[in-house]
Amino acid sequence: MKLLPTDPIKRLSLKLAVTSFGFLLFALFVMPPLYDAFCEITGLNGKTGDKYEAVDAVVDTSRDIKVQFVATNNSGMPWQFGPEVKTVTVHPGEQTRINYRVKNTTGKDMIGQAIPSLTPYKASSYFHKTECFCFNQQALLAGTEAELPMYFIIDQDLPEHIKTVTLSYTLFDVTDRFSKEELLSMVVTDQ
């Protein structure tokens, strides 16, 4: 079976068309994951990694790292949202728990999604979260509130010159992405 036409013009045109289609597929299916991988390696945009499995590590008490917590509501997200404590000082290697508080002040059941971002970017790959509310969406019934815990460890290999890191969470309204049943199945209650 011959795959390509014998006429050289048609042959070349077909090859070019296929190449062009290949670039479309490249843009759609290769570039986004490639970019994500790139962000993960470089810490670009301060994206912190997924769930981290804690390993036994020595706590480096000689170093103090100041961790600042900030919160931003994206537009159209009226919930009250913020950290309980705005700054903690930790040693590399020790696990720390902090809480954010969230309250659905509206009369509607809603789902929120918190997106973390860390500055400086260089610290992103040294900031490990063993548990984080940002791994899931948070569904809150109208008028209810919840405490959102986050456990983190700062890696002992954090570059020497970094002494302060700022972790920001931006809360987005993602209610539209889920059905009512899904919402009810993922409602969080106050611990």
């Binding site: 190449t19 670039f23 479309l24 843009a27 994206n74 999604q113 987005f172 309204d173 992405r177």
Partner: peptide, 28 residues
């Protein structure tokens, strides 16, 4: 031939984000 499909790709991703619920460009 190399880059016009990339433009087509980026507007297609926009179209998907706007009408089909994907999140190529949406942090949420």
């Amino acid at each position: 031939i190399a880059v016009m499909p990339v433009l087509a790709g980026v507007v297609t991703m926009m179209l998907m984000d706007i009408h089909f619920g994907t999140s190529f460009f949406d942090a949420a």
